[in-house]
Design a protein around this nucleic acid. Sequence first.
DNA 1: GCCCGGCTTCCACTGGGTGGGAAGCAGCTG
DNA 2: CAGCTGCTTCCCACCCAGTGGAAGCCGGGC
Lengths: 268, 268
Amino acid sequence: MAGGSREPGRSVTSKILAIFEAFEAAPGPMTLAEICSATGLPTSTVHRLLAELSSSELLERTSSGRYQVGIRLWELAQKAGRHLRETARPWIQDLAAVTNQGVTITVRKGRDSLVIDRAHGDQNLAVTSKVGSRLPLHASAAGKVLLAFETEWVRRNYLSEPLRKLTPVTHVDQRELEEELAAAAQDGYAQSLQEVRAGASAIAVPVFHSGQVASAICIVAEASRVTELKRYLPALRATAAKIENATRHLSRDAVIGAEYADGSLPQD
Amino acid sequence: MAGGSREPGRSVTSKILAIFEAFEAAPGPMTLAEICSATGLPTSTVHRLLAELSSSELLERTSSGRYQVGIRLWELAQKAGRHLRETARPWIQDLAAVTNQGVTITVRKGRDSLVIDRAHGDQNLAVTSKVGSRLPLHASAAGKVLLAFETEWVRRNYLSEPLRKLTPVTHVDQRELEEELAAAAQDGYAQSLQEVRAGASAIAVPVFHSGQVASAICIVAEASRVTELKRYLPALRATAAKIENATRHLSRDAVIGAEYADGSLPQD
DNA sequence: GCCCGGCTTCCACTGGGTGGGAAGCAGCTG
DNA sequence: CAGCTGCTTCCCACCCAGTGGAAGCCGGGC
């Protein structure tokens, strides 16, 4: 029988989530055994859940019998954040074409900035973060902008915890960052000179909605000097204004993640 | 007590899926009561599941207390089909910029074509299908291509069932379509002249991977004459070749949906 | 204030979920 | 090619997580 040593308190929902999170961390398709060890769930349980998820196409099986995230899940998820993404996309693409650089649009999600779309200039894809990737707020240009224009206590809260050094030049000193963010709020832009990845620098400006920062748009380039990045400011600002204008008619909830509603900063 | 009249045989997984599918059909955020009537599940059950899904951010609550699909679900789903989407994107965008028309890339999913990415030319977004939208294979240009280059029995199977007329000019006669698809296979492209939406026409070519159709790329324009659409053929073909080349190193499972693996055509 | 519709909480019951084990299977290896 | 090994699939008795009816709660309209 089963119950004897089973750890109680894990809902089915949490198990399903654990499985999907296992896929998020994995580099490619996974075998049953790999999923088991990643989630810590017993084989037969995982097997049954995988079979159920596969039958509804939330997962797919590769020809070798491994499992991978299914396109059906992608379909269901398309609704999330669609308004902002689709409204902003044309402007992002224009900006990428005009500047011939990589452009991203990001939102704040807890203590990270989350890339929700990007466009390329020519072929310089390598430096631009992928869609869906997360970066700590203090390292990326977009993150700094999102933080700089947040409410005082969100910013305080964020800076009070230890900050990770992604590269040798990532700013992690609290006092220094406070000043940098104050300057960013003043000037209306922030930059990150190789603070995320060596060789990649970026400049970002905020996009507002109903009086709050909703997102940030960011140009990523291989340039290493501020003066070069600053050239892009007028184009960036013009694009931000266009996006603000295009999203004005959208509801606040469609543009600003629901977590923002009460100003909370949930920890992961 | 509970069990008395409860309908057995519904797993938790199926209930969660039902909830997400309710969101897919809805135009915007939903209230608890709306989700209940959409799914047919009892209020308290839905309430508990929603609370659980919201706590893991798979769903979000709007400021008015309604529920909507959360960005976390979108994040988890980003992995699905990422390789094809991200590899193809630059070429799609270039094609859109060069032709100044809307461009989509689609894959076959059961009896539908599914738009997995798009790019715009100038501002003509209205005519191009949204990312994530499905269209029957016989109506869209991309669908015709996907069908024309499929194996004989998949095509037969598809044509044997009744076909829906999306507009007055949608081709639905089996014999006629068979000939049209044969011609498409011969010529290497297919078109749809206002067969999906009045005023929108399109031309599409296949993208192959390991000897099979993997996807189709499609130019959507307001043009209504074939000759105009045909102008885009060289550019389309060049783009398809570039994508084929860029995806060559990818595994078959990353490019072709797993359902293709055994050639099956699952019904919804 | 009172009513009404929808949201939230409560709680006893029970069947879907569970997971150890055993049988199947594919891919090596000597 | 038999024997082995690691993974997947199937089985089934047990029992707790999930269930859902009903009762409380909250807010907004009249």
